[in-house]
Amino acid sequence: MLDTVRQIETPEGVSLQLHAAGAVPRAHAWLIDFGLRAFVAFFLLMILGMLGQAGLGLGMLVLFIAYWVYGVVLEVWWDGQTIGKRVIGLRVVNADGTPVTLLPSVVRNLLRTVDGLPGVYGIGLVSCLMDPHGRRIGDIVAGTMVVHVMKRRAAGQVPNEAAEPPPVPLHRDEQEAIVAFAERARGLNEARQRELGDLLEPLTGRMGNAGLRKLVAHANWLLGRT
């Protein structure tokens, strides 16, 4: 039931940490969604029951939407979150960290029938406990996972480094590129940081970590820091 972290590196060299949700927070989100759907369906069925046979047919449609359509629609068009997942702070994503799309969402929701066997999500619970990323059968087949929504770090944070002016005048776009790199470098793995920093060795006169520190110093100076 413990949450785990899945480390993914994108083709651009950016390291992503997906904090996989365990069985407990997922169960809480499911209970919220189930209670909400049950309440709405019960209320609508009471009203539709007054319409006779026509109301019965509409009632079956309501139950179908509540059970099958609810999850897919919200996951695809509401940033991977049902109401229960949003309350708990969870999100469905593809296994590579990209937003979940229609087909994977349909597959994972259809396979709830399997995960629900033999009752009260027995198979799904066993799968969540055995899988290193807390996935039920539907997630494994669909190539999805449920992760915690992590608070984003404040944007535009250049590391502290004594400000130093560039050795040569820079055009505006060059200044913006240096500041942008200093702001985003911590989102890249160390090898990718050094690789990009080494490209600016003619400006910094340094390679490796020394070159990176020099770039940060130039960024701080361009931002008017002392």
Rank of each mutant, 00 (worst) to 15 (best):
L31S: 14
P25A: 11
A95H: 05
P132M: 06
H171S: 08
G156C: 09
W221T: 00
L129V: 14
T82E: 02
S15W: 00
S127Q: 03
Q175S: 03
L129D: 01
A54M: 13
V62I: 13
R206W: 00
V5Q: 13
E174R: 06
V149D: 05
T82P: 07
V149P: 09
G143K: 04
L170W: 03
E9M: 09
L45T: 08
S127T: 14
P118N: 05
H28I: 14
D139R: 08
G134P: 06
A41R: 04
V120Q: 12
T144W: 06
M46C: 04
A191T: 09
R186H: 15
G119H: 01
T204Q: 10
L203A: 05
L56N: 10
R136Q: 08
R194W: 01
M1E: 05
V216R: 15
A54E: 09
L18T: 10
R86A: 15
V179T: 06
Y121I: 02
L45E: 06
H148G: 03
G49W: 01
D33L: 02
R194D: 14
R172T: 11
F64S: 11
A219G: 05
P167M: 07
G71N: 08
V179S: 04
F39R: 02
L223I: 02
R184L: 13
V114M: 07
A20E: 08
A210I: 00
L48V: 05
K151D: 13
L18H: 11
T98V: 00
G122C: 04
L129I: 14
L61F: 14
T101I: 01
G224V: 09
T98Q: 12
A142H: 04
V40C: 10
A29I: 02
G59K: 03
A20L: 05
M130W: 08
V114L: 15
Y121M: 06
L103R: 13
V76D: 02
W77I: 02
L102A: 10
A23V: 15
A155T: 11
R225N: 15
L212T: 03
V141Q: 04
V40L: 15
I178D: 02
L18W: 11
L200K: 07
H133Y: 13
Q53A: 13
T204G: 03
G187D: 15
W221F: 15
A177E: 11
L103Y: 02
V24W: 15
D173L: 07
I140P: 00
L18Q: 09
L223V: 01
A180Y: 08
M46F: 10
T4K: 14
G71W: 00
V62D: 02
L58F: 12
F43C: 02
L199V: 14
A191P: 01
V5L: 12
S127P: 06
T113C: 06
R153H: 10
R184G: 07
Q7N: 12
I83S: 01
H19I: 04
M207G: 08
D198K: 12
V87D: 02
T113H: 06
D115S: 12
G208T: 06
A20G: 10
L51D: 07
V216K: 13
N189A: 10
E176R: 10
